[in-house]
């Protein structure tokens, strides 16, 4: 029997047994003939798993806030405390910084040092503006006697929003080191992998913030009778 006879007829939608499951590009995915996935894919996937675990941690803080929301211990309520204009400004900063971060990743793809640095600087400044607004809000709350120790509601508020703020601060430090590494070492593959992780981290922080401004600030300040 010749090997010719073992081959699938040419009109079959799939090739032979070795290309079964191959996609339109003729590549075999997984650990078959295509070989293991490139390192960039593995790095991104691993960091994606970390981000999901981070999101799960935040979901526990969201749950604590939702459960403790009405336990104000006779202290100030969300309606009395939160200024939605400040929240809108913070949201605008973070949303714009997510876009500039995406522009930075395009500049990195083009290996353009100038635009990479400009986009990353813009991302950093917008993130810094966000943190400044948040710290001002926290300081104003504490000065009005609404610190984290006032009530269970305020404890859960400061934990949730403060934890997000700490993440953004850590992201700013990471951003600074990325700028320095691109400047000093160029667009080396390992540094681009680090930057891929950073951009995933920064976009994920914006997703968390969407939950915070929608549920903590907008739903939280609804009149009492409209709350579920």
């Amino acid at each position: 029997m010749s090997t010719e006879a073992l081959r699938t007829p040419p009109d079959s939608p799939h090739g032979g047994p070795h290309t079964a499951g191959a996609d339109a590009f003729g590549h075999v995915t997984g650990h078959g003939a295509g070989g293991p996935a490139p390192k960039r894919i593995v790095v991104g996937y691993g960091f994606w798993i970390f981000l999901l675990s981070d999101v799960i941690m935040f979901s526990a803080f969201f749950a604590a806030y939702a459960v403790l929301f009405k336990n104000t211990a006779g202290g100030p309520t969300a309606q009395q405390l939160f200024d939605l204009r400040n929240t809108a400004a913070e949201t605008a900063c973070l949303l714009a910084s997510t876009f500039t971060c995406a522009m930075a990743s395009l500049a990195v793809g083009e290996r353009n040092q100038t635009w990479t640095q400009i986009a990353l600087l813009a991302t950093g400044l917008l993130g810094l503006a966000f943190i400044t607004l948040e710290i001002r809000e926290f300081a104003s709350l504490i000065s009005r006697g609404a610190g984290p120790s006032r009530s269970a509601f305020l404890s859960s508020f400061f934990t949730l929003v403060g934890c997000h703020g700490v993440h953004v601060t850590a992201g700013l430090l990471w951003l600074g080191t990325m700028m320095a590494q691109f400047y000093a070492k160029g667009f080396r593959q390992d540094i681009r992998h680090r930057f891929l992780c950073f951009s995933l981290f920064w976009h994920a922080l914006d997703i968390i913030w969407v939950g915070i401004f929608s549920l903590v600030y907008l739903v939280g300040t609804l009149p009492q009778e409209l709350l579920p």
Partner: peptide, 22 residues
């Protein structure tokens, strides 16, 4: 040429990581 060298491995599998360059 530098760019092509870097990207040589990235087209082996067509699966993309989150946020991956196209």
């Amino acid at each position: 040429s530098n760019k092509h060298e870097f990207d040589a491995g990235s087209n082996v599998g067509v699966d993309r990581a989150p946020g991956a360059e196209s």
